[in-house]
C-alpha cells in the first residue's frame, strides 16, 4: 500500500460546494473517487491510497492533466485504487467531477 497526496493548481472559478459523490468501484484494475468540497483556495487537494506501489510520478502526471482539463479548484478528491491504468484513472476522475458538478442544488 502506498499513500500519496497532491495539491493541484487549477484554473477557472472555484467549484461550488455540493454534497459529496463517489464514483467507481475498488475492483481489480479499477478505483473509486470521492469528491468533496475542499478547503484550499485556488487548488484541488487529492489523496490517493493505492495497492500498486512505485507509481507516484505517473499519478502526478495524470492528476496534473486532470486539473488542467477541469475547473476543480476548491475540491478535495480521495482515491482508493486497486491498480487501475492511467486511462481508467483519468476516466473515473472526469466522471466523478462531472457527477459532483452536475448535481441539482
Amino acid at each position: 500500500m502506498e499513500r500519496l497526496a497532491f495539491e493541484l493548481e487549477s484554473a477557472g472559478p472555484p467549484a461550488p460546494r455540493a454534497p459529496p459523490v463517489v464514483v467507481g468501484v475498488v475492483a481489480s484494475g479499477n478505483l473509486e473517487v470521492l469528491v468533496e468540497p475542499g478547503d484550499l483556495a485556488g487548488r484541488c487537494r487529492v489523496e490517493v491510497a493505492t495497492s500498486a506501489n512505485g507509481f507516484a510520478e505517473i499519478w502526478d502526471a495524470v492528476l496534473r492533466d486532470f486539473a488542467a482539463r477541469n475547473a476543480v479548484a476548491g475540491l478535495a478528491l480521495s482515491v482508493n485504487d486497486a491498480g487501475a491504468t492511467p486511462a481508467v484513472v483519468s476516466l473515473r476522475l472526469d466522471q466523478a467531477v462531472e457527477e459532483y458538478l452536475g448535481q441539482r442544488p
Partner: peptide, 11 residues
C-alpha cells in the same frame, strides 16, 4: 486489509 497490502473501499 491494509496489513495485507489490499485497497480499502470507503463504504
Amino acid at each position: 486489509l491494509a496489513g495485507l497490502g489490499l485497497a480499502v473501499a470507503f463504504d
